[in-house]
Amino acid sequence: MRPKTFFVLLVIAAAYILGSRAGRERYDQIVESVTAFWNNPDVKKARKNAKKQAEKARRRYA
């Protein structure tokens, strides 16, 4: 393999590895934010109310 081709492949591999690490950290940060939002008491209350309204509508139109 020519040295230039090897160097290009090496740079691509390094960029992939470094990018995937940064991507995982950002992914973990997003998951943490979404989990905190989902478990927020106000959001839980809104989900419960929406479920009740959907049940009422389902019974009314079924």
Rank of each mutant, 00 (worst) to 15 (best):
Q29V: 10
P41A: 11
F37I: 08
Y16R: 07
W38Y: 15
N39R: 12
K51C: 10
I12F: 04
V11M: 12
N40F: 03
T5S: 07
F37D: 05
N40Q: 07
T35S: 12
S20T: 04
L9F: 04
A36C: 07
D28L: 15
W38S: 09
G19I: 01
V31P: 00
A36L: 11
Y61L: 15
K4V: 15
N39V: 04
Y27P: 00
A22N: 01
F37P: 01
I30C: 03
L9K: 06
I17S: 05
K51V: 12
R2A: 14
V8Q: 06
L18Q: 03
E25I: 13
E55G: 04
A50V: 05
P41D: 07
N40H: 10
Q29Y: 05
Q29D: 13
N39T: 05
K56D: 06
A54D: 03
Y16L: 13
N49C: 09
D42K: 14
I12D: 01
L9A: 09
I17A: 11
Y61D: 12
M1H: 07
E25L: 15
L18I: 11
K45A: 15
A14Y: 01
Y27C: 06
E25D: 10
V11L: 15
I30G: 01
R21T: 06
Y16W: 05
A36D: 03
K56M: 09
V31Y: 01
Q29T: 08
L18G: 03
K52W: 07
A14D: 00
F7K: 15
K4I: 14
D28V: 09
A54F: 12
N40I: 02
T5Q: 05
E25F: 08
S33M: 15
A13Y: 00
E25Q: 12
R59E: 01
R47A: 13
Y27W: 09
R2Y: 05
R47K: 14
V34A: 11
V8M: 09
K52Y: 05
T5N: 03
L18S: 05
G19C: 03
R58Y: 06
I30D: 04
A62K: 02
A13K: 01
K52E: 13
